[in-house]
Design a protein around this nucleic acid. Structure first.
Lengths: 229, 229
DNA sequence: CCTGAACCGATACAGCGTATCGACAGGTAG
DNA sequence: CTACCTGTCGATACGCTGTATCGGTTCAGG
């Protein structure tokens, strides 16, 4: 589907970009389930079937949405030249975009994402390691390791954030109920090692993103020292 | 919903376990989208609405399915006593179960998973680190880092695997089309750093799971050496 | 044996993705 | 200028979804 560009002729009230942007806004406001062909059409004051002139199918629309976020994650000229700051900068940008649009992580697990901007982002990851002059296989190992860690972390973080209701009073109720459930678990005695964590709320877990990132980067450095010796 | 157990009275042709097991088989065979209340009911030779006597809603059924997989991921007495083999064993088990049921990763990003067996699995992670006698916050950092890495890796791996069609001839066609698309991208010159990877198929990427795992574990050891010094 | 509670089941409703087909606008060829 | 043809827009319709509602049925406890 990436081969078939938008038709873009004549009477164009609609366009692929417009549809994608609108769908992203919808997902941001009401979640991924709220993104339906009918609702996107309504938001654009168009009839549902009109969207199909610009997008082959709904799944492809979702791919386009993800690819758009990948585009927004690109650092471009802002990317530091030194490899370590570059890796960190990309990791943080990916995390920030993921948290700003929590539904994107869902798309990542639904379908293999191969859009051009996803690839461009991959290219940036590898480019960050360019100064190290590694054999390509090794650069790829590093990129996948860091990227997979970031993905996993943001996945958990986004799921946690999305679980608590937006409404304040409902959020309080949710926290109370989940808290009660977790303390019950802790009291059951079946979870001896995490009982303290369960009781203190579990949601109060600190921001560990940097810690894990540090560990992976430290190992990259260590293995490099091993090589050059 | 974890507070409300299955009613389990009287005329029980259906049961929560039966429904969950059947839904898992359905998801394994035809994917997560194939899991609909109506289809699960049909597989059990029951009427759709009968399921609601045992499961509050479909989303809860999905949670139950995930929790069942968490149960199957538990090592229990098989868990090695030394912390490093234990960490590795749990990581590999989680990966294996995730790949055997690729839809589980999807559930992980859809909803925060807090089922009792998910918690038991968390407990096992932390228990693995018990011999290290770390302050609980530090153990938690390690567990999240390793777990997030594993999650991220399996996410990518499962998405890649699920993308290629099950049918052999369709799989060949898919590979040809994706290959053509990727070589086009590589030829475009916009992806200078990953062009070689794109051309050699991208799907031929080697198994890097162990590499990243080694890196994180190496850093755990290193930071421990730093502490005890 | 009676009664209440639970399960099972049919029907119905709103919403979904999208196949099909008709109507129509606009650029291009004659 | 006219004719056509390509691609957009739109209405309708089909089969599927989750589940609210409610009525019938069966069983356990008293």
């Amino acid at each position: 589907m990436w081969a078939r560009p938008d038709a873009r002729t004549s009477r164009r009230a609609l366009s692929r970009e417009l549809i994608v942007r609108s769908a992203i806004e919808l997902a941001d406001r009401d979640g991924l389930d709220a993104v339906s062909i009918r609702r996107v059409a309504a938001a654009l004051d168009a009839r549902p079937m009109s969207l199909y002139s610009h997008v082959p199918a709904k799944d492809d629309l979702l791919d386009l949405m993800f690819d758009e976020l990948a585009a927004r994650s690109l650092l471009g000229a802002d990317r530091p030249t030194a490899w370590e700051p570059a890796l960190r900068a990309i990791a943080h940008r990916v995390r920030a975009v993921g948290l700003a649009h929590p539904w994107s992580i869902e798309l990542l697990s639904r379908r293999l994402q191969l859009g051009p901007n996803v690839m461009r982002l991959l290219d940036e990851w590898v480019a960050a390691l360019d100064p190290l002059r590694l054999p390509p296989g090794q650069a790829w190992s590093i990129v996948t390791a860091v990227n997979d860690y970031v993905t996993g972390y943001v996945n958990r973080e986004a799921a946690q954030r999305r679980a608590v209701p937006a409404d304040a009073t409902q959020a309080r109720r949710w926290r109370r109920e989940v808290g009660a459930y977790l303390t019950d678990l802790a009291a059951s005695g079946s979870y001896p090692h995490i009982a303290p964590l369960l009781q203190e709320g579990y949601a109060t877990a600190p921001d560990n993103f940097e810690v894990g990132l540090d560990w992976i980067i430290a190992s990259i450095k260590a293995s490099r020292r091993g090589r050059t010796r």
